[in-house]
Each structure stands twice: as structure tokens, then as C-alpha cells.
Nucleic acid binder design. Structure first.
Lengths: 137, 137
DNA sequence: ATAAATGCAAAGCATTTGCAACCAT
DNA sequence: ATGGTTGCAAATGCTTTGCATTTAT
């Protein structure tokens, strides 16, 4: 699947992409990253952005999050944490809750598998959309 | 986004699609469902399968699961439950563990949002792949 | 009778890839 | 100099959609 890469060169493009990703908490799409990177490197191509997002997820420097929309979002914080997704506006927020690694062990016992990690997402209405609801009522 | 539907007619196609989905625990792709349905309705079109999978997720009769692969998988069991995904062979299994609704309330308190549901997935190696590993060692 | 649903094929759209030029090592 | 990386554009592949026709109600 993922091809084996020899060594990885340091390039301006990848550097900027990673910096953009780490400087936001908005869980952006590839397109958004592309637009940001373009402000600094106007000739960067969308293909390069995708290629690097892929490489960075493979090396574990960023997290790729695929939701029920048709595109991925990326997270510059690669350590496992939970997300909240607003079903109305699509906003993705981090959930300030510790990761329950015990659950991994429980599933291993239960199913005879080996668990490396888990992913937990909450779906509902964000504070902003709730407030909008309250106002229009 | 989802268009509002008047009433929904009962059709042979949708009936078979739902039956196929409910008769397996393998969390199939749209393509797999299509192939199965074709055995019974040779002239069914892939478009119809997609259309109905969409309708059935919208009405909550099936669950659409989007993983890091490029395609969706569907689950004929629509009540919330957890999944285990094998990172080697791609197999998706149900996790026989009760759903922790308390977590939803905790996140609501923590973030001031409204949580409707959550989704929890475990990633690792399934029992079969572990066994294969042990044999080849 | 009426409008939802279908089959078919074309279109959409996010993502990937082939290739010649480029550049980090 | 070597081969990883880029920009560009074409290709891919899952999914959606337009339309004429069929079919459930």
C-alpha cells in the first residue's frame, strides 16, 4: 500500500505545509492548507500539498481525519486526542478529555486482537450553533 | 445538503439492498452490496445501490462508516456500537462492548455543546492476522 | 394519474500519478 | 551525481446526477 521510502529530504514546501498545519487548531482540509501555503509559496502545486500531507501522515507527524464528508481534514497535533464534530456547521474541535488507553486493553481481552490505538469522535451541535438556535427562538 | 424527501416508496431494489446489508456482519462496501444484489436483480444499477444506501443512512436504517480508505462501508445494524478495524487486512468487526453514553454528557459539560452520539473505533491487528504472524515466525 | 424510483451514462470532485525539470544531499 | 521532490496536467476512482422510462401508490 504505502510505498517504502528511502530517506526523506527536507524541502521548503514540506516545511511550510507542516508549519501551516501546526499553526492552526481548525483541522483544515487539503485545499485550505494549499491556499495558506500559496501565500508563502505562490507556485506550490496542489499535488505537492497532497503528496506531503500523505507523507506527513505516514511518518506520523500529522493526523489524517476522514469524516462523513467527502474530504479529509488534517490535524497538526499527532498525539491521540478526541474530536467533536458539529453536525450543523462542520466545525471540528478538540475535546479536552484524557485518552482512555484502558479501553484498548479491554478490547484486546474481549476480542483476542492487538489494539494500537483508538479514535473517538463526538457528534452534535457546537456552542456557536446552539447559541444561534437560542437567538432565533 | 440532504434534500427533503416526501414519502418513500417501497421498491424491490431497496428491499433487497437492505436485506443484503442485514444478512452480513462484514461491513461491506457499496460495490460488494451491488454484486450481491445483482445475483437477485441482475439489472440493478450501481447508481441505484448508491442512491438507496444514501436514503437508508438518511432514514437511519443503516450506518455509513467512512474509514481512511477511499470508500465507505455500510452497517446494517443502525444502533450505535463500536468497531475494530484491522490495519493489515482491512477487516471491520463489531466490538462487543456497551456504549458509554456517559461520555456524551461529560463532553457536553466540558465544552458547552450538545452531543447526539459518538463514534469509537479501535485500530490494530485482528486475531487472524496475529495468528498469521505467529505462524510465519 | 402522479411523482418517486430506476437504469444508464455522463459528470463531479477529492485525490493520485506520470513525467520532465529541479534541487537537497 | 543521484534520486528524492516539484509543478503541471492528465488520470483515477468512488460517488452523484440528469434524463427518459418505469412503477408504486
Amino acid at each position: 500500500m504505502g510505498e517504502v521510502r528511502g530517506f526523506i529530504r527536507r524541502t521548503k514546501q514540506r516545511e511550510v505545509i507542516l508549519r501551516v498545519l501546526r499553526s492552526t487548531r481548525c483541522h483544515p482540509t487539503a485545499e485550505w492548507v494549499y491556499q495558506q501555503v500559496r501565500r508563502e509559496l505562490p507556485h506550490v502545486s496542489l499535488g505537492t500539498v497532497y503528496r506531503n500531507l500523505r507523507i506527513l501522515s505516514e511518518t506520523g507527524e500529522v493526523l489524517e481525519l476522514r469524516y462523513s464528508k467527502s474530504y479529509s481534514r488534517f490535524d497538526g497535533v499527532a498525539t491521540n486526542h478526541y474530536h467533536f464534530v458539529c453536525e450543523r456547521c462542520g466545525r471540528v474541535e478538540d475535546v479536552p478529555m484524557p485518552v482512555h488507553e484502558k479501553m484498548d486493553r479491554a478490547v484486546e481481552q474481549l476480542m483476542g486482537v492487538q489494539v494500537r490505538q483508538h479514535r473517538l469522535e463526538f457528534y452534535g451541535l457546537c456552542a456557536r450553533c446552539l447559541a444561534a438556535d437560542a437567538n432565533s427562538r
